[in-house]
């Protein structure tokens, strides 16, 4: 991190422009046959200072994912706030992996201090841990959100993405499957919730998060990118699970999710939240797992726990 060259952006990048640019880059690489891959991540961090949440957008987000419209930013909302900056890192010409078609494998968030919506925030993002995956190459995109006035770290997120089919020089693919994947031995528990997700689930989340990735918007746009239909945003699903865990979690908490089978829309998703009690009988953490109630295929697993 200390070796990263800081790049200060004047304002939050526009996600729609980034997606257009990514599509253009993908087309150019296809025509010129040049894979960007150098096996090196750009040694830079992108930062935007003095970012504010829009309260109308916050309310819409909170209602969509099932949070009460409180004045505190949900941890998933902070992810959405930081996402354009992370995208701008992945959209750099010297970023070695193609942005479009990347798969969100897992996400790890530390919500250290609750963030009130009126707070002025500095958001920093960079890429690290380029590593091999049996199906391609994976990378961690880190985002940190600090108080603009005090510099205190409030929120930290690490998103792990997979560029399927991209193999870079010098990055060995591991022999055995890694990650939490492997749905073979999963037998669904009794659900504690059932979600009915309509075809517009992706569009609705795109509206509040700004993430207009075509794979989430419509069957046609998703098919154009090689999927058989549109899929729900992973962070939408994880944010709903976080909302369902509810008020039991403390102010400082860790929130993890590992994505497995994508949720093709429309869908019914079954969810189980298990409260794990501490030795004193209080709350230690909540584990969650979601699956397709028809096929029994697991969509994602995760946990919300207290930050030490």
């Amino acid at each position: 991190m200390s070796t990263l060259q800081p790049v200060l952006l004047g304002e939050l990048p526009s996600l729609s422009k980034l997606y257009v640019n990514a599509a253009a880059t993908a087309a150019r690489r296809r025509v010129l046959g040049a894979a960007g891959g150098t096996g090196q991540l750009p040694a830079v961090s992108h930062e935007v200072r003095n970012v504010h949440a829009d309260v109308g957008n916050l309310t819409a987000y909170q209602h969509l994912v099932g949070e009460t419209a409180s004045d505190t930013l949900p941890a998933g909302y902070v992810h959405a706030l930081a996402f354009p900056i992370s995208m701008s890192v992945m959209n750099r010409d010297d970023f070695p992996l193609p942005l479009l078609g990347m798969i969100h494998l897992k996400n790890k968030v530390e919500q250290r201090v609750p963030i009130v919506f009126s707070e002025s925030l500095d958001i920093l993002s960079w890429a690290e841990n380029l590593s091999g995956h049996r199906a391609g190459t994976q990378v961690d995109i880190v985002a940190e959100v600090r108080s603009h006035s005090t510099g205190e770290l409030l929120w930290r997120g690490v998103s792990t993405y997979l560029a399927k089919g991209s193999f870079l020089p010098g990055i060995d693919k591991p022999g055995a499957p890694n990650g939490a994947a492997g749905t073979g031995d999963f037998s669904p528990p009794n659900p504690t919730a059932l979600w009915q997700l309509g075809l517009d689930t992706g569009r609705n989340y795109a509206t509040v998060s700004g993430d207009f990735n075509p794979i989430h918007l419509s069957v046609l746009s998703a098919k154009a990118l090689g999927l058989r239909g549109s899929i729900a945003h992973g962070m939408y699903l994880a944010s709903r699970a976080l909302a369902d865990v509810g008020a039991v979690k403390p102010d400082s908490f860790a929130w993890e999710v590992a994505f497995e089978a994508p949720v093709f829309l429309p869908a019914r998703v079954a969810l189980d939240i298990t409260t794990v009690p501490s030795e004193s009988g209080g709350w230690e953490r909540s584990d969650y797992v979601a699956w397709n109630p028809r096929s029994g295929r697991r969509h994602f697993t995760g946990t919300v726990s207290a930050l030490a």
Binding site: P191, L194, W195
Partner: peptide, 17 residues
């Protein structure tokens, strides 16, 4: 509202339990 399960589905879980 909090679970999306109908009352019958909730009771089905209890009945089985």
């Amino acid at each position: 509202p909090r679970t999306g399960l109908s009352m019958g589905e909730h009771q089905a879980l209890t009945t089985a339990q």
